[in-house]
């Protein structure tokens, strides 16, 4: 795997376990985070490269918000945004890097 890919994969693994500092989240915090995540995921869709785990995180965020658990909802929304952005990096990078794998 190329160095860029290794670093990028490492970043994703780190993000999957990241938790922010503990402060009670408000509905407004969640809504802002969700909007950002949703926008990033739509961009991933435009690039035809979305991840199932992003969709799952968005779904978890929405469900948590529905029950009023904005701490969880915010965490999940942030995770979704990170995953969506990673999928965008992947799609963008792969526009050139795919050639590394090609049989010649």
């Amino acid at each position: 795997m190329s160095v860029v890919m290794k670093n990028f994969t490492f970043a994703v693994i780190m993000l999957a376990g990241s938790v922010g500092p503990s402060l009670a989240a408000s509905e407004a915090d969640f809504k802002a985070a969700f909007a950002a995540a949703d926008a990033a995921e739509k961009e991933g869709g435009r690039l035809r490269n979305q991840w199932t785990t992003t969709e799952a995180a968005l779904s978890t965020a929405k469900k948590a918000a529905e029950t009023g658990n904005f701490d969880q909802a915010l965490r999940s929304a942030q995770e979704a945004e990170a995953l969506a952005k990673a999928s965008i990096v992947q799609a963008t990078s792969e526009q050139q890097r795919w050639k590394d794998m090609e049989i010649h």
Binding site: S18, G20, V89, T92, S93
Partner: peptide
């Protein structure tokens, strides 16, 4: 707004990739 230190790695990676010239496909 709370800090999100880990996301800055990602935005840096994004910027790096943009610089590498992976803009529109040739």
């Amino acid at each position: 707004m709370r800090t999100r230190p880990t996301l800055s790695i990602l935005t840096a990676a994004l910027a790096l990739c943009a610089l590498i010239g992976a803009s529109s496909p040739a």
